[in-house]
């Protein structure tokens, strides 16, 4: 991919983000933060590339450390979001 196509993806994604996030209900702003936290750990992709390749041992260990940190975030972020979201309940019906 050349720079311009990458830049296009980026700019369009910013707009998508803008509209999607405005539609998030304020009651769910905390889960929004924790889930964005989890997904920004997609940076683990870079960490995996560094950790997977032979060549520079320092680079590999840096990659492994980054994999560990990002994993804390991925698992922790999605799990805590799930835990929060499962607490949001509607009013129980009176006749129930």
């Amino acid at each position: 991919m050349d720079f311009i196509s990458i830049l296009s993806i980026f700019v369009l994604a910013c707009f998508v983000g803008y509209f999607v996030v405005w539609s998030v209900t304020p009651a769910l702003h905390t889960p929004l933060m924790s889930v964005t936290n989890a997904i920004s750990s997609v940076i683990v992709v870079g960490a995996l590339i560094a950790a997977a390749t032979a060549g520079s041992p320092v680079s590999k260990w840096l990659g492994l450390a980054a994999v560990a940190l990002a994993s804390v975030n991925i698992f922790g972020g999605f799990a805590v979001t799930q835990r929060m979201l499962s607490m949001y309940k509607k009013k129980e019906r009176r006749d129930a």
Partner: peptide, 9 residues
């Protein structure tokens, strides 16, 4: 994937 996510977040 990283670019889209980064822009979203």
């Amino acid at each position: 994937a990283m670019i889209i996510t980064g822009a979203l977040v």
